[in-house]
Simulated assay, not measured.
Amino acid sequence: MQAGGEGSLIANQCARACDFKCLTTSHKKLCLFFCNMCCRKYLCNPLGTFGNKEECPCFNNWKTLKDDPKFP
């Protein structure tokens, strides 16, 4: 399993992990909302503030209506 992979967190760790993940985005409120939703569902959060999305299915596969990645 990768370091930030599915099941690598417990539910109460999601808020802190998402605070860090969304630290550098200009859309912090939306990032936190969707990050926490993904994290609670899959119990994972990719490492770092950008990239590594392949570590967590929701972050890797979730797209905007324009088919762009939802997460940085």
Rank of each mutant, 00 (worst) to 15 (best):
G7Y: 04
R16V: 15
N61H: 05
N36M: 05
L32E: 14
G5A: 13
C44L: 02
K29I: 14
K63Y: 01
G5K: 08
A3N: 14
K70N: 05
K29V: 14
C44D: 02
K21P: 00
K21L: 13
E54F: 13
A11N: 09
K21A: 13
K63P: 00
A11D: 10
F71T: 01
F71M: 00
F33V: 13
E55I: 09
D19L: 07
F34G: 07
F59G: 01
G48N: 10
A3E: 12
L43E: 01
L9V: 05
A17M: 12
T24C: 04
S26L: 10
C58I: 01
A17V: 06
F20N: 13
E55K: 05
M37F: 06
F34C: 05
L9K: 13
F71V: 00
T64E: 00
M1D: 15
M1P: 15
G7E: 07
G4Y: 09
P69N: 10
Q13R: 13
C14M: 08
Q13A: 11
N60L: 03
T64P: 01
K29S: 15
L65Q: 07
C56R: 00
F59Y: 11
L43D: 03
D68Q: 06
K29E: 10
T25D: 02
T49L: 06
T25M: 07
P46F: 06
T64W: 02
L65C: 03
C44Y: 00
C44E: 03
A11S: 10
G4K: 10
N61V: 01
F33N: 13
N61D: 03
A17R: 14
G5E: 15
K63M: 03
P46Y: 01
N61Q: 10
N12E: 12
C14A: 08
G51F: 12
G4S: 08
K28Y: 09
G51R: 10
D68T: 06
C35R: 02
F34H: 15
N45F: 01
I10T: 12
F50E: 15
T25L: 00
K21E: 11
E6I: 15
K21V: 11
G5P: 09
